[in-house]
Simulated assay, not measured.
Amino acid sequence: MATDHELTLYVMTGCPYCIKVKHFLADNGVTIPERNISTDSDAEQTLIAVGGKRQVPCLFIDGEPLYESNDIIAWVQENLL
């Protein structure tokens, strides 16, 4: 994966939309660093502070939040595949 973007995927244990995104990434050989807000309180606080809400999945692209699993998948398809 060659990208000029700084990426972080915020997820939560058991979230079906997070699982959908993670399966898509795995199926396409894309690796994005993850932070799990269920087990990492700092990640949760960062998500809320930057994004303004506690919603996952959330892909931070160069520090900007992108929500909704379908939108994240579409961005990955357009920019990383």
Rank of each mutant, 00 (worst) to 15 (best):
K20S: 14
L66H: 02
Y17Q: 10
K20T: 15
I19K: 14
V76D: 01
L59G: 05
T13P: 05
V11I: 13
I19M: 10
E6M: 15
L9Y: 05
I32C: 02
V76A: 02
A2R: 12
M1P: 12
C58L: 12
Q45S: 14
L80C: 04
R35Q: 12
V30S: 08
I61K: 09
H5K: 15
D27Y: 06
L59N: 00
K53W: 02
K22R: 15
Y10T: 03
F60A: 12
D71P: 00
W75S: 10
M12W: 03
D62F: 07
G14Q: 06
K22F: 10
K22G: 08
D71K: 00
D71I: 02
C58H: 08
I37G: 10
V56F: 01
D27Q: 13
T31V: 08
A26M: 11
T3L: 12
T13Q: 06
L25N: 08
E68S: 11
S38N: 06
S69F: 02
G14T: 07
D40N: 12
I61A: 04
N79H: 04
C18P: 13
L25M: 14
F60H: 09
I32L: 02
K22A: 14
V76N: 02
S41E: 04
T39E: 15
Y67M: 13
Q77M: 07
C18S: 11
A43S: 10
E44S: 06
S38E: 04
A43M: 09
G29L: 13
I61R: 04
G51P: 01
G51D: 01
G29E: 08
N28H: 15
G52D: 02
L7M: 04
E34L: 07
T39S: 13
V21T: 11
G14N: 09
L9T: 05
A49R: 14
S69W: 06
S69H: 08
T3I: 09
I32A: 03
R35P: 00
A43D: 03
V11G: 06
E44T: 05
V76F: 01
D42Y: 05
H23S: 14
V30P: 06
D62G: 11
I19A: 14
Q77W: 00
V21F: 13
V21A: 15
L25A: 08
G51F: 00
L25E: 05
E68D: 11
H5F: 11
A26C: 13
D42N: 03
T13K: 02
E44H: 10
N70H: 00
C58E: 06
I48R: 09
L47Q: 03
I19C: 10
V11F: 01
S41V: 01
L80T: 01
A49H: 07
E44V: 13
T39C: 12
D4G: 15
L81V: 07
E34P: 11
Q55P: 04
Y67E: 12
